[in-house]
Amino acid sequence: MSKNNPFYLIEEIYNEHYRYLKNFLIGLTKSDEIADDIIQELFAKILMTPTRILEVNYMKSWLVKCAKNTLIDYY
């Protein structure tokens, strides 16, 4: 599979940053289930426009910002 394929990149990003995002969101929500829901919703949004991921320069900070915004939308 090509490294430039956005779906392949999204899978790599998910595997690399899942644990960090989950711990970050558990710290904010105090709930394991809500943290998983937020991560699921976040990556569902990313999968709606997968080529946008190619424009991101600082992946971890972008994911944290998106996770915060998704959490706000959740509440």
Rank of each mutant, 00 (worst) to 15 (best):
S2P: 15
K30Q: 15
K60I: 06
T29F: 00
Y75C: 07
N4W: 01
Y58V: 05
S2L: 14
D32P: 01
N4D: 15
F43S: 03
M59K: 13
L21C: 09
D32C: 05
Q40F: 07
L25P: 07
H17D: 11
P50E: 02
Y20K: 12
Q40D: 03
I39V: 10
E33V: 09
G27P: 07
I26L: 08
Y20D: 13
A67K: 03
L47Q: 09
L63E: 04
R19L: 08
C66Y: 08
A44G: 03
L9Q: 15
K22I: 00
N23F: 09
H17A: 01
P6E: 11
T29K: 05
Y8R: 14
C66Q: 15
Y18C: 06
F43H: 06
V64P: 04
L9W: 04
K60D: 04
L42G: 01
G27C: 08
M48A: 12
K65P: 07
D73N: 15
R19H: 12
K68Y: 09
N5R: 13
T70A: 10
P6N: 12
S61G: 07
L25H: 06
D32T: 09
V64S: 04
C66F: 08
Y75A: 02
N23A: 04
P50Y: 03
E41P: 00
K65Y: 10
I10Y: 06
Y58S: 14
Q40L: 07
S2E: 12
K45S: 13
L42A: 01
T70K: 09
I53W: 00
C66T: 04
Y18D: 07
L21P: 10
T49A: 10
D32V: 11
I53L: 05
Y14K: 15
M48L: 14
K30Y: 15
E16H: 12
T49L: 02
M59G: 03
Y8F: 14
Y18N: 11
L28V: 00
I34W: 00
I39L: 05
Q40H: 13
N5Y: 13
L42I: 05
T29G: 14
Q40G: 04
Y20G: 02
